[in-house]
Design a protein around this nucleic acid. Structure first.
Length: 882
RNA sequence: GGGGUUGUAGCUCAGAUGGUUAGAGUGCCUCGUUGACAUCGAGGAGGUCACAGAUUCGAGUUCUGUCAGCCCCACCA
């Protein structure tokens, strides 16, 4: 045992332990296993992705909950899997093709998809392997993929049903288009950023030569597609001009001036050029006013053919040319600076172009209503609660969801078009013959579905849907969803809607929201800033337990946290502390009879104290986990293990361990073992590897800690009851210890050098107890000999605390004047406190309105303060008389 | 334009349902290597809890407003 290394070296150990766990099937469960079902579905990481800090946090939180519930005896399932991540994955393979001098169109759809699947086979395991290094106890035997057979079947079934119910439709609309990704996007895939732009004031001449009207625009290049100019119907400036014809500059097209109440009289000139093909508002106005839609921008962001010199120009280059030409033609009035919001593609950050195209949409209103209700009724709860507002607000203002993407990697839309009769057929099974005309000339819709469509089904598709599996029956609805606030709309809301629609129940009862992991400066970790810290690197250097502990300490639900290497080090030090406390125990355990069991009567006060503290921590840690306050639970564990167990209790056992009383030593070892073993189980969800390796070294312990019982208070029922006034006694002892240490330090005495101490005990309940256990003060404060006396030694350093006066008699070392000054300062402090307490007690309203126990506590406080005051006064008086 | 959130020790953050002298980590200062641990131990300095009001016997904690930062949502060209 003594050959255990002095520091904890996690690297090798972690890998070995994880392999053992997985080999033993510890992560796996079945629907018919015993216990209450407890299930979490993993937020599936992108199949080609790499682990980042956000994953590490997300995984850690889930693994803590999962391990806790598994130990509690619940039938616990953590369902893992990956997401096909349409655009991201396709982009990676396309990049690879570019390197080979080819592209997807040259390859063709079928060959291209083969390449993507190949890519998935090559890189798809990387992320799940990385999850393992964190210690994630996922049921890997059940691993799923959003494009596997089952998930694909679920997607088809859901799509067809929604279509048949009229909730999915195909329509020509103006949608967000990314010219770079070359696909339509949903509204939430567009990120708005305010940019410093310009407002160009243009002069549009009337056809009849009667002058001109001035319009203002942020996008002059779209003027090529203008098919009207709009003013507000009540705008006095323009009222008489409505109906006139305008000659569009540069194009020389005749367009109408019309009135539409959408126009804001106050903005710009009050007259808007209308480009129905390239602006969502103009599109609507165009529909209302029967305007022509003239498309001037291609899907790739260049100008269309037939525009003369402008054709083929990039939209921004075209803008420059147009402005120059307008200026040359005398049509440009002025250019103003103007700040406005511009939409960008979430994935590639290209400026989005609103374009008219035929796309598939989901009607959201009827799906959103139950999802709102589920939260309002409390069936689904957000942690922290404030996110319910954000969620509800979004759902209440929801618009139809564009679900078709012009990509190849994804779930291809199950719709077929008949070239013979022109009819469309939507079907769960592939269509080879047109059901309308029995023609065979069928073309399948080329588009694939938005990745989030399949993600939305994840909580039930992974459990077996569309089949009615035992897992689906047992584990749906799942218990909690753990995710970041950044994907509440993308994912959470859609899962709730789909879950309610297709299972009739919410997909999870709690949504546990966490924040983002930021860098040391509080910036978001990003590729472009290159400020990301690789969790794998942290694990290699410090171990997964340290990373996990670092990520949850000091963190509260929903709030962002910063990554600091010093915080990882602090967590590593904690792991090392536990390692060494265990090493200490194991060394002393050599030759000890492991079957020895102590009884309540053998326990001494220190044992009772640490057991009472342990019980308290079992309660608070459990309670904190249940409330999702994992940072608080971690703090409780840290305090207990480091301060109470290591700093005090272990020190107090040393006398017994090194002494000659075999029975006393056995008792100390028994309590040490019990408390350590229980602490390990309590800590296991947070630091799974360390707790496993240490517990395996303890005698009499069998099996993995993963499958051990989570500690409960009643485990200790026969060892300790709470009728002892142990807490009061401990407070007094620790207070005296602290005071002795302090006085020694002030005198410059080495903390480990023994000094004589005289104590005058004034505590009502604990005087005798303290006298018979003075050894505790000797052991913790290196105070020896300790004498109890009523008289006050004259030449001594001293202080007064609640329940005791402490003297360090040091003839010749004491500077009386300094002592008086120090004690006077102390006296002032106590008097101030006493005055404020007395103030409260003199307040009639405090006495009549505050709860009796609060008043009583104040009374006791005042008594104690008064005692202290008189003791200090006497002492000062005594010194002055020297 | 709406909504949210943050402001507590030099730094990073905890402080549920209002009730002792407001805590931790880290940094800093002083001391200490004989048997768990220097990835350690002992002691110490450091906070008018952003500001102003209100509610209350009592506010870091509840409410209102102000200031500062961050974030989300939003079709004013």
């Amino acid at each position: 045992m003594s050959n255990i290394s002095k520091t904890y070296e996690p690297q090798e150990i972690e890998r070995t332990i994880y392999e053992e766990w997985e080999r033993a099937g510890n992560f796996h469960t079945t629907a018919d296993a015993a216990g209450q079902p407890y299930c979490i579905v993993i937020p599936p990481p992108n199949v080609t992705g790499q682990l980042h800090m956000g994953h590490a946090l997300d995984e850690t939180l889930q693994d803590i909950l999962i391990r806790y519930h598994r130990m509690k005896g619940d039938n616990t399932l953590w369902m893992p899997g990956t997401d096909h991540a349409g655009i991201a994955t396709q982009a990676k393979v396309e990049e690879q093709l570019r390197g080979e001098g080819t592209n997807r169109y040259e390859l063709g759809r079928e060959k291209f998809l083969e390449r993507v699947w190949q890519w998935k086979e090559t890189y798809g395991n990387r992320i799940t392997y990385q999850l393992r290094t964190l210690g994630s106890s996922c049921d890997w035997e059940r691993e799923r993929f959003t494009m596997d057979k089952g998930c694909s079947a679920a997607v088809r079934k859901v799509f067809v049903q929604l279509y048949n119910e009229g909730l999915i439709y195909r329509g020509t609309r103006i949608t967000n288009w990314c010219p770079k990704c070359n696909t339509a996007l949903s509204d939430i895939e567009v990120e708005h950023e305010t940019e410093q732009g310009h407002l160009w004031h243009l002069r549009y001449p009337f056809a009849d030569g009667s002058g001109y009207i001035e319009v203002a625009t942020t996008r002059p290049e779209t003027m090529l597609g203008d098919t009207g100019v709009a003013v507000h119907p009540d705008d006095e400036r323009y009222k008489n001009l409505v109906g006139k014809k305008i000659i569009l500059p540069l194009v020389n097209r005749e367009i109408p001036l019309f009135a539409d109440s959408y126009v804001d009289k106050e903005f710009g000139t009050g007259a808007v050029k209308v480009t129905p093909a390239h602006d969502p508002n103009d599109f609507e106005m165009g529909l209302r006013n029967n305007l022509e839609q003239v498309k001037v921008i291609n899907n790739d962001g260049t100008m269309v053919d037939g525009l003369g010199k402008y054709s083929g120009l990039d939209r921004y280059k075209c803008r420059e040319v147009i402005v120059a030409d307008l200026e040359a033609g005398g049509f440009l009035v002025k250019i103003e600076n103007h700040e406005h919001a511009v939409g960008h593609c979430q994935r590639c950050h290209t400026t989005v172009e609103p374009l008219i195209s035929k796309q598939w949409f989901v009607k959201m209103e009827s799906l959103a209503a139950p999802a709102i209700e589920a939260v309002k009724s409390g069936e689904l709860k957000f942690v922290p609660e404030r996110f319910t507002k954000i969620y509800i607000n979004w759902l209440e203002n929801i618009r139809d969801w564009c679900i078709s993407r012009q990509l190849w990697w994804g779930h291809q839309i199950p719709a077929w078009y008949c070239d013979d009769c022109g009819e469309m057929t939507v079907s769960e099974t592939d269509v080879t013959e047109c059901p309308h005309c029995h023609g065979k000339n069928l073309r399948r819709d080329e588009d694939v579905l938005d990745t989030w469509f399949s993600s939305g089904l994840w909580p039930f598709s992974t459990l077996g849907y569309p089949d009615d599996t035992p897992e689906l029956k047992k584990f749906y609805p799942t218990s909690v969803l753990v995710t970041g606030y950044d994907i509440i709309f993308f994912w959470v809301a859609r899962m709730v809607m789909m879950g309610l629609k297709f299972r009739g129940e919410v997909p999870f009862k709690h949504v546990f929201i966490h924040g983002l992991v930021r860098d040391e400066l509080g910036r978001k970790m990003s590729k472009s800033l290159n400020n990301g810290v690789d969790p794998v690197e942290v694990i290699e250097k410090y171990g997964a337990d340290s990373l996990r502990f670092m990520l949850i300490t000091g963190n509260t639900p929903g709030n962002d946290l910063r990554f600091y290497w010093s915080k990882v080090e602090s967590a590593r030090n904690f792991a090392n502390k536990i390692w060494n406390a265990s090493r200490f125990l194991l060394m002393n355990l050599e030759g000890f009879d492991p079957t020895f069991k102590t009884t309540r009567d053998d326990l001494e006060l220190a044992d009772k104290w640490i057991l009472s503290r342990l019980i308290y921590r079992v309660e608070t840690v459990t309670d904190s986990i249940e409330r999702f306050e994992l940072g608080e639970a971690a703090r409780q564990l840290y305090e207990f293990i480091w301060f109470e167990f290591c700093d005090y209790y272990i020190e107090l056992t040393k006398a017994r361990l090194y002494g000659s009383d075999a029975q006393a030593k056995a008792t100390a070892l028994f309590v040490l073992s019990t408390v350590l073993e229980t602490s390990l189980r309590l800590l296991h969800p947070f630091m799974p590897f360390l707790t496993e390796i240490i517990r395996q070294k303890l005698p009499k312990v069998e099996g993995s800690i993963m499958l051990a019982k989570y500690p409960t208070v009643d485990e200790f029922a026969d060892l300790i009851s709470n009728d002892d006034n142990i807490g009061e006694f401990a407070d007094l002892v620790l207070n005296i210890v602290k005071t002795v240490r302090n006085l020694k330090s002030e005198l410059g005495i080495d903390s480990r050098k023994k000094v004589a101490v005289v104590l005058k005990i004034t505590h009502k309940n604990c005087a005798d107890m303290l006298k018979s256990h003075a050894r505790y003060i000797t052991d913790l404060a290196f105070a020896e000999p300790i004498t109890f006396a009523d008289e006050k030694p004259a030449h001594a350093m001293s202080n007064v605390i609640d329940g005791a006066e402490i003297y360090l008699p040091l003839e010749g070392l004491i500077d009386t004047d300094k002592e008086i000054a120090r004690l006077t300062k102390e006296l002032d402090k106590v008097r101030k406190g006493a005055a404020s307490t007395a103030g409260k007690l003199n307040n009639e309203r405090f006495l009549s309105k505050a709860p009796a126990e609060v008043v009583q506590a104040e009374r006791e406080k005042l008594d104690a303060a008064n005692e202290k005051i008189s003791a200090l006064e006497q002492r000062i008086n005594q010194l002055e008389n020297l």
